[in-house]
Design a protein around this nucleic acid. Sequence first.
DNA 1: CTTTTGGTAGTACGACTGTACTATCAAAAG
DNA 2: CTTTTGATAGTACAGTCGTACTACCAAAAG
Lengths: 206, 206
Amino acid sequence: MPKLADHGQRRAQIAEALLRIAGSSGLHAVTMRSVAAEAGFSVSVVQYYFESKEKLLLFALQYLARRVSERVEARVRAAGSPPTARRVVEAVLTQALPTDAESRTFHLVYTAYAVLSVTDPALAAQPFMSAPDEMRAFLTDQIRAAQSAGEAPADLDAQAEATGLLAMSAGLGTSVLLGQVTAGDALAILRYHLGRIVPEPEGVRG
Amino acid sequence: MPKLADHGQRRAQIAEALLRIAGSSGLHAVTMRSVAAEAGFSVSVVQYYFESKEKLLLFALQYLARRVSERVEARVRAAGSPPTARRVVEAVLTQALPTDAESRTFHLVYTAYAVLSVTDPALAAQPFMSAPDEMRAFLTDQIRAAQSAGEAPADLDAQAEATGLLAMSAGLGTSVLLGQVTAGDALAILRYHLGRIVPEPEGVRG
DNA sequence: CTTTTGGTAGTACGACTGTACTATCAAAAG
DNA sequence: CTTTTGATAGTACAGTCGTACTACCAAAAG
């Protein structure tokens, strides 16, 4: 066996190069050649570690989704102990906003993928496309828990609130991406609406 | 002068062919050849009436935006006389949902364009990209008017409500497109949230 | 009639794309 | 040492794209 090469690391390097391109120039600018150049390798290397462009794209998106997911979980864990429903919900929803380069790239690439998946069944069947469904179920449970604990009005339709909030968060994220509102404004609007549903227990903000 | 040919009609025919393709196969499937074939013309004809693909795309999107805009205005006019703020707001927001083929195509194509515009300044400079801003201002005014008329709580932040509702509407539209929620569910959720902000005056639904 | 000209079709070209293929290099195995 | 083999590079090919170009046709103008 000749040179040592950590396949996992190489694949990560290439995936990150792809995401840099997708984040700065769009998903349509992602080609075997552009990714290879960005990663500092030849096209053959990209071919060697990913047998096709489709496999590469899928891996890169899962790679990104996993990193974002980890960030959300970290935010939830850091939401205080014990975490109130309000803090958990807020952590999940605000994490979806494109506030920094990574979440911006995630939003952009994920939306581009979503648009493609509408007319491409193969993409729609990908596992990460069901993430919003899980988020919705999670938020619904959180709101119901808050209602049980008396932290939220009992007459709320938890499912409708969760779905609406998630849609609002996604829509605000897109608006931020388009430059129609700033990330700060989007955050404030999200907190405003959150306050009308699951009021914050008391005083201090983190 | 030989044959007569209504340029406006030809351009409309071609634009509609483009939108059919974009709506069924995605914006990436829009090529000079596919549009020409769909319209039943040769590529040369498409070239003849649109000097470039970019011009064609822009015209088609404006064509679609105008039709949707007309539908929104028609819905607003049909919202009763005199139209209550609630009915007007509801008409605008629900029209944005992809409930039929035309609005579905509009949502899909518009979102695809929006994604592209993030990394393409030339697209971002297009006039129809400012439509959401106008909608936001319009909705804000409507909510303020409702507050003045005592139809909505005075302590609402009209701007935050308008921006949030618009984002929610857009997000729900995307969810419908992705098949995560049905159009009926999205409508119900939108009405539910509308009811918490600008309650419906009384009884009967249209 | 002939001439002009708006409209249509076919074709060709250069630039890209994904990918298959071959060659090369260096380190481990014998 | 020689042989093997994981890793990298270069090249070639078939396909698609937008678009320029030429040719052709038929109706109006002279």
